[in-house]
């Protein structure tokens, strides 16, 4: 077993203190150690975006992040996004535009879209497509997800 390191951070607004192996991914810490399973494993290589979380407000692939790097930071997962009613507009848009099918990519899409809308509150279609280029979806063909994020940002195109 690798060296254990104790870290403390905020997860969805609440303080967490945890001892984790130095080589562990933030994704594995969330899912396996803290049992916060909304964040998904899709590839483990930063290619699919299913594991997207916010760290100090920036979206990152939690599968590429060393868990130890979470020390002192603020993490927001899909559960944290959903806990804030401000984000209902985005979630409702995904539901109403048909942006959800099997739903496995959805947590990553929600978190990434949240980051995108924080950065560009009224994104155009191109910005949304580029903003979601790191999130793979095998069901929807993306159009309805892009529609939803545009809709949540108040633009139809």
């Amino acid at each position: 077993m690798s060296l254990a390191v104790e870290i403390a951070f905020k997860l969805n607004g609440s303080p967490v203190r945890v001892s984790i192996p130095a080589t562990m991914t933030a994704l594995s810490m969330l899912r396996d150690q803290l049992n916060v399973t909304g964040t998904k494993y899709g590839c483990g290589e930063g290619e699919c975006g299913a594991c997207t979380i916010l760290v100090d407000g920036l979206s990152v692939n939690s599968c590429l992040m060393f868990a130890v790097e979470c020390d002192g930071r603020e993490l927001t997962t899909v559960e944290g996004v959903a806990a804030n009613p401000v984000n209902d507009r985005l979630r409702d848009a995904l539901v109403e535009h048909g942006g959800v099918q099997c739903g496995f990519c959805t947590p990553g899409m929600v978190v990434q879209s949240k980051w995108l809308l924080d950065k560009h509150p009224h994104p155009d279609r191109h910005q949304v497509e580029r903003g979601l280029e790191g999130n793979l979806c095998r069901c929807t063909g993306y159009k309805k997800i892009v529609d939803a994020v545009c809709g949540a940002g108040g633009s139809n195109e």
């Binding site: 930063g46 290619e47 975006g49 997207t52 920036l58 979206s59 990152v60 692939n61 590429l64 992040m65 990434q112 980051w115 995108l116 580029r130 903003g131 280029e133 790191g134 999130n135």
Partner: peptide
């Protein structure tokens, strides 16, 4: 470069 998430990290 890569994806927005990787560009952020």
């Amino acid at each position: 470069f890569a994806s927005p998430q990787i560009r952020n990290m």
